[in-house]
Design a protein around this nucleic acid. Sequence first.
DNA 1: GACGACCTACCTACTAGTAGGTATGAACAG
DNA 2: CTGTTCATACCTACTAGTAGGTAGGTCGTC
Lengths: 194, 194
Amino acid sequence: MAGPSTTSDEILRCARSLLIEGGYNGFSYADIAKVVGIRNASIHHHFPSKSDLVRTLIARYREEAEAGIAHLERQFANSADQLRAYVSYWQTCIADASAPFCVCALLASQIPVLPAEVILEVRTHFRTLSAWLTSVLERGARQGELRFTGTAKAEAEAFMASVHGAMLSARAYGDPKIFGVITHPLLERLATRH
Amino acid sequence: MAGPSTTSDEILRCARSLLIEGGYNGFSYADIAKVVGIRNASIHHHFPSKSDLVRTLIARYREEAEAGIAHLERQFANSADQLRAYVSYWQTCIADASAPFCVCALLASQIPVLPAEVILEVRTHFRTLSAWLTSVLERGARQGELRFTGTAKAEAEAFMASVHGAMLSARAYGDPKIFGVITHPLLERLATRH
DNA sequence: GACGACCTACCTACTAGTAGGTATGAACAG
DNA sequence: CTGTTCATACCTACTAGTAGGTAGGTCGTC
C-alpha cells in the first residue's frame, strides 16, 4: 500500500509538517532541504514554485481527508459515532503532536497573503468538509440519532467552526486536553443518547 | 481622547493591520515603512526588534480589548445582551473588513514559530477572554438569563472557540455572513428567551 | 548642549528561483 | 553485448531581492 516513498513524497510530507507549524511564510525551501537531505535547488525540480508545492500538498491532504471520511462512513453506521470518530481522530493528532492542526484551517487564517491557487484548494476543503458534516447531520436527524435546532447546514458549519476553534485553543494554551473540553459537550448535545 | 497620533502609534496601527492579514511572518519592516512614510531603519528606533514591536502591539490590543469588555459591562446589564454585543462587535469588524480577525487568534495558530515573549501575550489574551466569558456565563446562569449544561468555564471555552472558528470560516469562504450563521444559533441556545 | 526622532548607508543572513552541468539507468539500434 | 540516446534526479554555483538589524550622522526642540 505505502509504496517506497519517493523524494517528492518526502518533500511533500516534510513541507506539510513545517506548514502545520508556522503557515505559508513560516518555512522555506532551505528548511525542507535540510530535513529531506537534498539541496535547495533540487526541490524546484519536483515543484517549480512554492505555490506549486503547497497546492500539491493540499491536494494530497484533501485526498487523504476524503479517504478518511470514506473510511469513517464504512466503519460506523451510526452518524453520532461518525462525528465522535472524526473528533477523536483530531484529539489523537493533537495529543501526540503528530499533526496538531488542520492544514487548511491554518492556511485559511492567512488567506489574504496566499497565492490564488492555494486559496482555491483551501476553500474547496472547507466546502467538502462542510458538505460531509451536513450529510451526516441530515442522516442523523432522519434516523433519530442526532438532534439539533435549525438547518443541518448551519449546524454543520457551527460544528466545523467549533472543531477549528478548539484546535486553536489547544495551541494557544499549549494544552491538548482543552480540545476535548470543547468538543465533548458538543457531541453530547448532538447525540440523542449517550 | 484620541491624541495626536505619534509615529510610534502609526507603526503599531499599521503593523496590526498587516499582522491581521498574514500573521507574524506575513509582513516586514519594509511593508510598515512604506505605509507610514518613514525609513526601514527608523522603525528600529521605536521598536528595537520585531518581537518587541509585536509584543507591544498585542499588549495594546489587549488593553483595548479589556476596555471594550469594561464598556460592554457598563452598557448592558443583561449577560445575554453582553454576549450578543460581543459577537455583534466582531460581526461588524468582519463585515466592513476593518479588522476581520482577532490578532491573538491569528497568532495562536502560528505559536510554534513565534518568539517566546509573543506567545506569553497571546496566551494571556486567551486566558483573559475566557475568564471574562466564564464570569458572564456564571452571572447569566445565576440570574436566569442564560442556560447551559456543564460548567461555565467549559461553556466559555466552547463559546470562544466557536467565535474563533467562525472568523476562520468567514475568511475561508470569503463570506462575512457565515460568521452570523455560526454565532447566532449559539447565542439563541444560550439565551433563556429571545 | 542634550535628547529624541529620523536619516543615509550599510551589514549579514536568507528568500525563491535559475542556469547549466553530472551521474544514473532505461530504451533501443546495431 | 555493446554504444548511443534520452530522461530523471540531483548537483554546484549563481541571481536579484528581501529579511531584520546596526553604525553613525543630521536636525530641530526643550
